[in-house]
Amino acid sequence: MRIRPNYVAGLAAVVWLLIIGVPLYALLNTALQPQSTYTDGGPVSLPSTVTFENFVTVVQSGFPLYLWNTFLVAVLTVAIVLILGIPISYAVVRGRGWLTRGVFRLFLLGLAIPSQAVIIPLFLVVNGLGLYDSLWGIVLPTAAFALPVSVLVLSGGMRDISVSLYEAMALDGAHPARILRELVIPLSRSSIATTCVFTALQAWNGFLFPLIMTQSDETKVVTLGLYNFVSEYEANVPALMAAVLMSAIPILVVYLFARRSLVMGLMGAGGK
């Protein structure tokens, strides 16, 4: 059969590529120009001078430390969410009692609570625990607010696993921990990948918790480190764009490796 080309879809794809590509080009173009000339030809014009001094300025400002702190926050947050979210989701899916249903409803209720509404009690709790101005003061609240969506995604993926597989392992004498380890986790890779990417993005782009829970340069993350290039009277825009580019590359790499599992998990096909 002869396949007829879909010109409308091709045109829409080109338009969408421009929508995504033009801002990225403007970001890279500005990051590679000197501060004195980056406004001469506009954000999408070809650069007259290419320099890497902006990246040197970013590195010398201590930005690699902020990247490292953000990486630690993201890794620890993802670890906590997976350690807590996978068993909770498994209990929600396999449990039949009122307690598991109540726990699931409690997590769904957490979706409706914005972090801005409880930031003062959170600050008092973190300060009372002695975690103020530490990375744990960012990790724990971020993980708490990532858990509701994570439980929702993970439980959706686990529900896609056939009940007969659960029953077959139970008949073979497998205890719940073994079923979770050998059946549920391998067949929930897509939903787990979705949870990892979502949680990592939330931790990487977090601004409110780092702003309120930290104050020293040693605990700064990238979202706060970007302010180093903006002062009261001026802004070093090329260096700022270079810092944004450096901060976006790690999470982009994570997305490239997990994009297929991420799409499958969001489509609700985590166990298929």
Results as ranks from 00 to 15, higher is better:
Ser48Lys: 14
Thr49His: 12
Pro114Ile: 00
Ile113Lys: 02
Pro186Glu: 10
Gly102Gln: 09
Pro186His: 09
Tyr90Pro: 06
Gly130His: 01
Phe71Trp: 03
Arg159Val: 03
Met169Ile: 01
Val126Gln: 05
Leu122Glu: 11
Phe71Thr: 14
Arg101Val: 00
Glu167Ile: 00
Phe52Cys: 08
Gly97Ala: 12
Phe107Cys: 08
Val78Gln: 10
Ser89Phe: 04
Gly157Leu: 05
Val73Leu: 12
Val58Gly: 03
Val118Arg: 01
Ala193Phe: 00
Pro186Cys: 09
Ile138Ser: 04
Thr100Arg: 10
Leu147Thr: 02
Glu53Gln: 14
Trp98Glu: 07
Ser164Asn: 12
Gly157Trp: 04
Ala117Trp: 00
Leu111Glu: 09
Pro176Glu: 08
Ala170Glu: 15
Val139Ile: 11
Val75Asn: 01
Val59Asn: 06
Val50Ser: 11
Val126Trp: 05
Ser134Pro: 07
Val81Pro: 10
Val78Tyr: 07
Pro176Ser: 05
Asp160Ser: 14
Ser150Met: 09
Val125Ala: 11
Val126Arg: 04
Leu122Arg: 08
Pro121Asp: 10
Val93Gln: 04
Pro148Asn: 01
Leu99Gly: 03
Ala74Leu: 10
Met158Asn: 05
Val78Ala: 13
Ser191Gly: 13
Gly137Tyr: 02
Ile161Asn: 08
Glu53Ile: 02
Val151Ile: 15
Glu167Met: 01
Asn54Ala: 09
Ala168Asp: 07
Leu180Asn: 04
Pro64Met: 09
Gly102Phe: 08
Ala146Cys: 15
Phe107Thr: 04
Thr70Trp: 01
Ser115Asp: 10
Ala143Leu: 06
Leu180Asp: 00
Leu82Phe: 08
Thr51Met: 01
Leu129Ser: 01
Ala146Val: 03
Arg101Glu: 09
Gly137Asn: 01
Met158Trp: 03
Trp98Ile: 10
Phe123Leu: 14
Gly110Val: 03
Thr49Ala: 14
Val139Asp: 00
Pro114Thr: 00
Leu183Lys: 11
Ala174Thr: 08
His175Pro: 11
Leu111Phe: 07
Leu154Met: 14
Met158Tyr: 06
Val118His: 00
Ala168Thr: 06
Arg94Tyr: 05
His175Glu: 15
Glu167Ala: 04
Val103Leu: 15
Asp133His: 07
Leu109Phe: 14
Ser164His: 08
Leu82Trp: 10
Tyr132Lys: 12
Ile138Cys: 03
Val56Glu: 14
Phe71Gly: 11
Pro186Asp: 10
Ala174His: 09
Leu99Ile: 13
Leu187Phe: 03
Arg159Thr: 04
Leu111Tyr: 05
Ala91Thr: 12
Ala79Tyr: 07
Gly128Asp: 07
Leu171Lys: 06
Val58Arg: 05
Val118Met: 01
Leu84Ala: 14
Arg159Phe: 03
Gly137Met: 02
Gly156Arg: 09
Val56Leu: 13
Leu72Met: 10
Leu129Met: 12
Arg105His: 09
Ala170Val: 12
Leu180Gly: 12
Phe71Met: 11
Thr49Trp: 06
Asn54His: 06
Tyr66Glu: 13
Pro87Lys: 05
Gly128Tyr: 08
Asn127Asp: 14
Phe63Cys: 08
Tyr90Asn: 12
Pro114Cys: 02
Ser115Lys: 11
Arg159Gln: 13
Leu140Phe: 04
Glu167Lys: 06
Val149Ser: 12
Ala168His: 03
Ala74Ile: 07
Arg189Cys: 02
Tyr132Asn: 11
Leu108Cys: 05
Arg94Ala: 10
Ala91Val: 12
Ile161Lys: 09
Phe63His: 07
Ile138Glu: 06
